[in-house]
Simulated scan of single mutants.
Amino acid sequence: MKKDRLNVYFDPILTGELESLAARRKVSKSQIVEAALASYLSPDGADQREAAIVRRLDRLTRAIERLERDLTISTEALALFVKFWLTTTPPLPDTMRDAAQAKGRERYDGFVEALGRRLAKGSTLTKEVSEEGNRSSTNQ
């Protein structure tokens, strides 16, 4: 089949990338440019790109919905725990208040330190619970 010859100009960086790709794929630069141009000019090329974008957006939407659901569950669980704890914990007598506040600050500092270590390691309670659930379901 007869082909027309075209002289085109490319940015030197793009030319280098084209030469590199042609060498890796062991095809001519003309074949790569011809395929790219055919794809660009194809009437359904835009539809294919749009469909790919829509699929990615759908995946992102589902992921965000899962995150929102998980955040709602976590927030509700924490709020319920705090409400339960506050309603069942009796108030301290005035004589013990200072010692209890000092102990509370010490425990809180330890809690923040432990939280920082766990997050730095990438370890979360959610992952641990999930892994334990997976182990127990395979043992049954």
Results as ranks from 00 to 15, higher is better:
residue 132 E to K: 13
residue 102 A to R: 09
residue 28 S to C: 11
residue 19 E to T: 02
residue 62 R to Q: 15
residue 117 R to M: 15
residue 67 L to H: 02
residue 82 V to D: 08
residue 6 L to S: 00
residue 26 K to Q: 11
residue 122 G to I: 10
residue 47 D to R: 15
residue 5 R to P: 00
residue 97 R to Q: 14
residue 31 Q to W: 11
residue 36 A to F: 08
residue 92 L to H: 01
residue 65 E to W: 07
residue 132 E to T: 02
residue 82 V to Y: 03
residue 27 V to Y: 07
residue 115 L to A: 12
residue 53 I to F: 08
residue 72 T to M: 09
residue 130 S to L: 13
residue 12 P to C: 01
residue 1 M to D: 02
residue 105 R to I: 06
residue 85 W to P: 00
residue 66 R to M: 10
residue 100 A to P: 05
residue 64 I to T: 05
residue 27 V to R: 12
residue 85 W to R: 05
residue 137 S to Q: 13
residue 104 G to R: 15
residue 88 T to W: 08
residue 26 K to W: 01
residue 31 Q to K: 12
residue 71 L to Y: 14
residue 89 T to P: 03
residue 94 D to F: 10
residue 60 L to V: 04
residue 106 E to Y: 07
residue 64 I to Y: 03
residue 126 T to L: 14
residue 107 R to A: 05
residue 101 Q to T: 04
residue 50 E to I: 12
residue 22 A to F: 06
residue 92 L to A: 07
residue 7 N to K: 12
residue 87 T to R: 13
residue 83 K to F: 03
residue 128 E to V: 11
residue 91 P to V: 07
residue 119 L to H: 10
residue 9 Y to L: 11
residue 30 S to E: 13
residue 54 V to C: 06
residue 139 N to R: 14
residue 127 K to Y: 11
residue 50 E to T: 10
residue 89 T to R: 13
residue 115 L to M: 11
residue 80 L to R: 06
residue 11 D to I: 03
residue 67 L to R: 14
residue 58 D to R: 14
residue 138 T to G: 06
residue 70 D to V: 08
residue 37 L to F: 12
residue 68 E to I: 04
residue 49 R to S: 04
residue 17 E to G: 02
residue 125 L to K: 04
residue 48 Q to P: 00
residue 98 D to F: 06
residue 110 G to N: 15
residue 83 K to Y: 05
residue 47 D to I: 13
residue 46 A to T: 07
residue 74 S to C: 03
residue 60 L to K: 03
residue 106 E to L: 13
residue 6 L to Y: 12
residue 13 I to M: 02
residue 4 D to Q: 03
residue 11 D to Q: 06
residue 117 R to E: 15
residue 19 E to A: 13
residue 29 K to F: 04
residue 61 T to L: 04
residue 43 P to N: 05
residue 39 S to L: 13
residue 115 L to F: 15
residue 114 A to W: 11
residue 27 V to P: 07
residue 48 Q to F: 15
residue 120 A to C: 10
residue 23 A to W: 01
residue 71 L to P: 00
residue 26 K to F: 01
residue 23 A to V: 03
residue 52 A to F: 06
residue 134 N to Q: 08
residue 99 A to G: 10
residue 100 A to V: 06
residue 134 N to S: 05
residue 59 R to C: 00
residue 17 E to W: 01
residue 89 T to N: 11
residue 21 L to F: 04
residue 111 F to C: 04
residue 59 R to G: 00
residue 135 R to G: 02
residue 110 G to V: 09
residue 17 E to K: 14
residue 128 E to M: 12
residue 34 E to D: 14
residue 115 L to S: 13
residue 55 R to I: 02
residue 88 T to M: 10
residue 2 K to E: 09
residue 22 A to I: 02
residue 106 E to N: 08
residue 97 R to M: 12
residue 68 E to N: 03
residue 78 L to S: 03
residue 137 S to I: 08
residue 36 A to K: 07
residue 54 V to D: 01
residue 106 E to V: 04
residue 61 T to R: 01
residue 69 R to V: 03
residue 41 L to N: 01
residue 108 Y to E: 08
residue 10 F to P: 00
residue 23 A to N: 03
residue 49 R to N: 01
residue 126 T to R: 14
residue 64 I to R: 15
residue 51 A to S: 12
residue 24 R to V: 11
residue 7 N to W: 10
residue 112 V to M: 12
residue 38 A to Q: 13
residue 77 A to T: 15
residue 5 R to L: 10
residue 51 A to M: 13
residue 128 E to W: 04
residue 135 R to V: 10
